[in-house]
């Protein structure tokens, strides 16, 4: 079980990193979202994996999973939505304003830095 979670974190990180290193805004946003999953699971897993012991207090039960990482991750999930929305908005504004959805600034003096999409947009 631990191996499954660890490998899932690893895979999400790897695919997130790969997509973050792409050159257009959309894959970068996807990549950051994947990294967010990875980080959230990682934080959550710092409370160790416990099956069937939710932190809902009830009489007669003595084992509960660690509630603190859950509380932290819960707000992290909501905040990451806000962050994703802002990044998407910035990407959208850049694309609509500059007709280009590259994440890298064009190299100065390089005329081909302008996207071929400029014509497509119209």
């Amino acid at each position: 079980m631990e191996f499954l979670v660890a490998s899932a974190i690893g895979l999400l990180t790897a695919s997130g990193l790969y997509l973050t290193l792409r050159m257009r805004t959309f894959p970068v946003i996807m990549g950051i979202s994947l990294l967010t999953y990875a980080v959230n699971i990682f934080l959550f897993a710092s409370g160790r994996l416990v099956v069937g012991a939710p932190p809902i207090l009830s009489d007669g039960v003595t084992t509960y999973t660690d509630p603190l990482p859950q509380a932290l991750v819960l707000t992290a999930i909501v905040i990451s939505f806000g962050m994703t929305a802002v990044v998407v908005m910035i990407a959208l504004g850049a694309y609509l304003g500059g007709k280009d959805d590259r994440v890298d600034d064009p190299v100065p003096g390089d005329a081909s830095g302008k996207s071929s999409q400029a014509e497509d947009m119209a």
Binding site: E2, F3, V5, A6, S7, I9, G10, L11, L12, T13, A14, S15, L17, A38, F42, A45
Partner: peptide, 10 residues
């Protein structure tokens, strides 16, 4: 990066 986080989590 993925292997590193995996190792750390594991």
């Amino acid at each position: 990066g993925g292997l590193a986080t995996m190792a750390l989590s594991w």
